[in-house]
Amino acid sequence: MKRSMLALTAAVLSSLASAQIPSKLAPVPSWSAELSAPRSVSGELPLTLTVYNVGGKDLFLAAPRDSRQNCAAAPLVRVLEVGTRRVVYPAPDAEPLLCAQDLDIRTVAAGGSVVYTRTLNLPAGEYMVEGWHTGGGQKVPAQPVRVTVR
């Protein structure tokens, strides 16, 4: 099992290394993403990011854990207060966490999709939630969503 995981990791890294990855995290034409959340919630805010492979071949999508996002691999988010654009999450003054160094690696068939979910605890208010998937030098942004937390 360990040997097969190492082989898979090596194959992913090899394919990522051979791909022409931009030095800056720019949107990649083979991927698109959609962020969804309830318009209004009480309590935890559930988020769903669906990443679509719009290319013509099966592709790997790899996501490391983010130390500023409670060690989440995906979706990565930024929450802004409506009207002020103050960043509510991730907290600008929060210390980064020490996360496991594993990768969430998934194969996405041509024309297929993969779904990532997570929840956020936010104080009551109106927010714009920006979401994206970042992994392997790729940033796949989604359209922001507006939510009300009661």
Score class of each variant (00 low, 15 high):
Asp102Arg: 02
Leu8Gln: 07
Val115Trp: 00
Trp132Met: 07
Leu61Pro: 11
Val28Pro: 04
Asp104Cys: 08
Thr148Val: 15
Asp104Arg: 08
Glu130Gly: 12
Leu103Lys: 11
Val12Thr: 01
Leu120Met: 01
Leu122Lys: 08
Val140Pro: 01
Pro123Leu: 00
Leu16Tyr: 06
Val41Met: 02
Gly137Lys: 03
Tyr89Cys: 02
Glu44Arg: 09
Pro141Ile: 13
Val28Arg: 07
Tyr52Lys: 12
Pro123Met: 11
Ala62Met: 08
Glu95Asn: 12
Gly112Thr: 08
Thr107Phe: 04
Gly131His: 10
Gln101Ser: 03
Gly135Phe: 00
Thr148Gln: 07
Ser4Gln: 06
Pro123Gln: 02
Arg39Ile: 15
Val12Ile: 14
Glu81Thr: 08
Val88Phe: 15
Leu49Gln: 06
Thr117Arg: 15
Ala142Val: 10
Gly125His: 03
Val140Met: 09
Pro22Ala: 03
Gln20Arg: 02
Lys139Gly: 09
Asp58Trp: 05
Gln138Met: 04
Ala73His: 02
Ser40Met: 07
Thr117Lys: 10
Leu35Lys: 14
Gly112Gln: 13
Glu95Leu: 14
Pro96Asn: 09
Ala91Phe: 06
Gly111Ala: 12
Ala10Cys: 03
Trp31Ala: 01
Pro90Tyr: 04
Thr50Arg: 13
Pro144Gly: 02
Ala100Asp: 12
Asn53Met: 00
Val82Thr: 12
Ser15Asn: 01
Leu8Asn: 00
Arg78His: 11
Leu61Met: 14
Leu35Val: 02
Glu34Gln: 09
Ala109Glu: 14
Glu81Cys: 11
Asp58Thr: 15
Gly131Asp: 09
Glu34Phe: 10
Lys24Asn: 15
Asn121Gly: 13
Gly43Asn: 10
Ser113Ile: 05
Pro75Phe: 02
Ala73Leu: 06
Gln143Arg: 12
Pro46Ala: 06
Leu76Arg: 07
Tyr52Cys: 00
Pro38Ile: 15
Ala62Phe: 13
Thr84Glu: 08
Ser23Pro: 11
Leu35Gly: 05
Ala110Met: 00
Glu81Phe: 06
Leu97Asn: 05
Thr119Pro: 01
Ala72Leu: 09
Thr48Ser: 14
Leu98Ser: 13
Ala17Gln: 11
Leu16Lys: 11
Leu16Met: 04
Arg86Glu: 15
Leu122Phe: 14
Asp102Thr: 07
Val115Ile: 07
Pro22Thr: 04
Ala26Gln: 12
Val79Met: 02
